[in-house]
Amino acid sequence: MTEMTAVQPDATAPGAGPMVRAEQVHKSFGPLEVLKGIDLEVRTGEVCCLLGPSGSGKSTFLRCINHLEKINAGRIWVDGEPIGYRERGGKLHEMREKEVAAQRRSIGMVFQRFNLFPHKTVLDNVTEAPVLVRREKKAAARERAAQLLERVGLGDKLGAYPGQLSGGQQQRVAIARALAMQPKLMLFDEPTSALDPELVGEVLDVMKDLARDGMTMIVVTHEIGFAREVGDSLVFMDGGVVVESGNPREVIANPRHDRTKAFLAKVL
């Protein structure tokens, strides 16, 4: 997979360049243009918080990063690899389903509505992909899954089904499930929006812990406190474009753009 980085001069070898680079990303659903040219760079180990009003295209952009949505124009690289396409002889080729799946393995995603597999126990939720996709040995996968679940504070829930857990517990299982694939990048799409207020903290704590460990994260969130405390950068989106970005503490304290001001005034 390294030969394609040679063809693409501005994408450097894995590890050296930014973890995520987006260039002029456009995405439409039929006649509706949702993303109108997004540029973004996230360094390795950076926590990037994505803010914006409802419908501004945050989820769509996040889903483009792991190719759950196909982009119409622009490029996205993750760790130097162009996502979803391969460049050969100056021409773009769509990747096969298997190749796309392989790219997604190193990108973890956490959803607003958890999306745990309800017919599998907590432990099986976490071991499913490592065993099936990474071909890990069952015993080894179980052991690591138990460690991960211990880490998110659910060491005593291995045999429970998702339906028996609270929202906060489910979301922590979802984080453990994503981590079990040993991703180099984690995408969070409003991970605490579906939670009761008193459960938000336990999920944010797990995410802070991850950030401290140096995980590269892109977090769509309305938790301004989290952005201020943990974020290395803040990107404010509106109407399918990046309106303003920079250091979270500065942007939150001194938004330059009117739209950012209006939005922050509402959520703060």
Partner: peptide, 9 residues
């Protein structure tokens, strides 16, 4: 979607 995001075919 969750399964796709985990890299399953």
């Amino acid at each position: 979607e969750a399964a796709q995001a985990l890299g399953m075919t």
